[in-house]
Nucleic acid binder design. Structure first.
Lengths: 251, 251
DNA sequence: ATAGGAATGTTGATTTTTGTTGAATTGCAG
DNA sequence: CTGCAATTCAACAAAAATCAACATTCCTAT
């Protein structure tokens, strides 16, 4: 551990981005030394290097959520458009967390007099701004990567509301196992929402039909006959069995 | 990843729409560079491009709220900058609702490991996305024009948290009556936050020193000696008495 | 004191980024 | 639809940053 590492890390993390030149001025060494000292840090992932400057990996951290929002963006926008066709002005809907839900919330800004319950702060704040909507945020403490809550109080809120629709998502769709997610708490919220909703709308983009790097293992609650499956392309034939009783929608 | 990306994103997200020329002035580079730097960002969907300007993809979602956010925008941005100087990485802070709070939340994205409690869904979702933050949303049912909550449960959450700072705002500052707002529920939330906070930070832009069309009549709780008053200009002399014990900050 | 080793500064070739120019495109008013 | 002004784009020249190799300095163990 070089003697400058601590100070360098500290400076960069504090300011977010700082140029190599400025760093050399601050630490009182040549720019070449800054490059040399920072190289192991960059390799180790403690810092990011760009031409002319070093940027804190922490500061670039606005990206994880945005990055996910931008994965398969077109697909998600298309799906959101289909979902919105199902929802009418004045309807009530429960919305789970997930990047697709974010897009649906965006699209739902064109609907009026909605009653919404969600455990995603992003969805809540997006829809609460629309005059005439009645939005309830379920839960208190927010998970940091997506701003969603899985508190006990979230269940209390969800269980109090009787809604027309529930929007659900999944991380992977498996022809035999069904709709899968990574965390049990997500399943629990989905179950609670489903129990108090008329019809479910399962929204998954086509990438969810293909194997994932990080394999989810937890099964979302089973959908009722007549529930919607909204996706951006016709699903492969292997899934025909799984989707037998569902109403499938795609653009 | 270019060295300007962070600053560019931040500027655009903060202001909603900003012209290429202004951006080049702000970052101190040519307009051509702005176009070059922004291209990958718009490809990635992090920004939207229109003729002559860049617009934040987020801003589209927050449009109604943003309309209010754009009143006295420079003043509020300046105030947010000052407030952020007070807050350190790792601090805990309670944040009330209001457009200035929205800007402070944006600016606080540069701080790490914050513990935040707020009754504004916008503030909550802005800060919850930052990895390492611990954000609690106080309240359930959201008021439609600003997405804030004044539920009983909001008080429960606020009263449970002991924080270093509380950020408060006001609709009008009267030399004799003090800091005024329109609704009793806002005072109640402010009182609850204040009771559990170390130092208060009252943030008001200069327009709040002048008479308003809609006159607020409810007085915010009294500040303690040593609490901060952050504003964008030196306040008129008539207010010297009111601010006697406060630490006044402005750019 | 001094030789060995590590860290730092310097130099010059190479690569990347930036500003400028002029032509092509776009948006808008008449 | 036409013309004007503003914006954008492509290409080239200039500037800045990077890298590798070598020279210098600093520290320490003998």
């Amino acid at each position: 551990m070089s003697k400058y590492e601590t100070m360098l890390l500290q400076t960069v993390d504090m300011r977010g981005t700082v140029s190599v030149q400025e760093l050399s001025r601050i630490l009182g060494v040549s720019d070449q030394t800054i490059r040399r000292v920072s190289r192991p840090l960059v390799d180790r992932g403690a810092l990011q290097k760009v031409h002319g400057a070093l940027v804190s990996t922490k500061s670039a951290a606005d990206l994880p959520y945005l990055a996910r929002m931008n994965l398969n963006r077109e697909a998600k926008v298309a799906i959101a458009g289909e979902v919105v066709k199902i929802i009418q002005d004045g309807d009530s809907i429960a919305i789970d967390t997930g990047s697709t839900s974010g897009f649906v919330a965006q699209a739902l800004r064109n609907r009026r007099e909605l009653t919404v319950v969600t455990n995603s702060a992003y969805v809540a704040s997006t829809l609460a701004m629309i005059p005439g909507n009645n939005v309830s945020m379920a839960g208190t403490q927010l998970r940091d990567h997506d701003g969603a809550s899985f508190d006990r109080s979230a269940f209390d809120v969800i269980e109090r509301m009787q809604v027309d629709y529930v929007l659900l998502s999944a991380s992977l769709v498996d022809a035999r196992k069904g709709f899968l997610v990574h965390e049990q708490c997500e399943v629990d919220i989905a179950s609670a929402m489903l129990a108090n909703a008329g019809q479910a709308i399962m929204a998954v983009d086509h990438s969810k039909f293909e194997p994932q790097m990080r394999k989810p293992a937890l099964r979302q609650p089973t959908l009722k006959p007549g529930d919607y499956l909204v996706t951006d392309r016709a699903p492969p034939d292997d899934f025909a069995g799984l989707f037998a009783n569902l109403e499938i929608r795609f653009p």
